[in-house]
């Protein structure tokens, strides 16, 4: 048995101690998840974000159940007059559609990224960022409208004062996530455009960015159901 083609294995080194030991123990060829590390980390971040948003929505549920004052009707609060017609909740419906559209373009971007289609990937990511910016703009409009109508975190003209604090907290935190996502998308799109991931040899960063963006859409699904449709 000639082992000429067998590569010599490395000598098993003594386990290091201290901080180096921690690093080597946690990284020592004991990979649990067979995905790029960035993707695993993004999932874990999104998991922690899930807990944060659930805490917000749960506290909202709690104050809404426990208040003895009627809750303002979201269907009326978020209605708009378009062309002389009074349409309930229309702004939120449009915002939902914008965010879903952006999720679709993001999915396309990831797909084209893995096909190594640099221009399409960058363009689709920028379109996604554009829809995200549109969403934030509409949210700014919504906030302005409500603030001029007298909604404050401690009071509002229509009912339970907790409405304002829940509204600003939940939609504000979600809006921050969208804004951060727009910046994140723009940075990665620029790198795609410049061929950074072709040099790196992998477009997995585009998919990881996509995970974050789809999560933002996912959170909106729950906010839409519990805050606006309840």
């Amino acid at each position: 048995m000639s082992e000429s083609n067998v590569t010599p294995a490395e000598e098993p080194a003594a386990a290091p101690s201290g901080l180096t030991g921690v690093v080597s123990d946690w990284s020592g060829d004991k990979e649990a998840f067979h995905v790029p590390w960035g993707k695993a980390m993004m999932w874990i971040f999104l998991l922690s974000d899930t807990f944060i948003f659930t805490c917000f929505l749960t506290s909202y549920m709690n104050v809404r159940i426990s208040t003895t004052v009627p809750w303002p009707n979201p269907s009326e609060v978020f209605a708009l007059n378009i062309g002389g017609q009074h349409i309930p909740l229309i702004l939120i419906a449009i915002m939902t559609m914008v965010l879903i559209t952006s999720s679709g373009t993001m999915a396309m971007a990831v797909n084209y990224g893995y096909r190594r289609h640099r221009a399409y990937t960058a363009a689709l990511m920028l379109i996604t960022a554009g829809f995200g910016a549109t969403f934030v703009g509409m949210q700014a409009f919504e906030w302005t409208k409500l603030i001029t109508e007298g909604v404050r975190p401690w009071a509002n003209p229509w009912g339970a004062p907790q409405f304002g604090s829940c509204f600003f907290m939940i939609t504000g935190f979600h809006g921050l996530h969208v804004s951060a996502g727009v910046i994140y998308l723009s940075v990665v799109a620029r790198r795609v455009w410049r061929g950074f991931y072709d040099q790196k040899g992998s477009y997995e960063t585009v998919e990881i960015t996509g995970l974050y963006w789809h999560f933002v859409d996912l959170v909106w699904v729950f906010i839409f159901a519990f805050f606006y449709l309840w």
């Binding site: 659930t54 805490c55 749960t58 506290s59 549920m61 709690n62 809404r64 159940i65 426990s66």
Partner: peptide, 17 residues
Amino acid sequence: VLLILILLMAIEGDYTF
């Protein structure tokens, strides 16, 4: 596990009400 939190907070909210 968040379902348990939601359940507990719903019970708590009813009680406060």
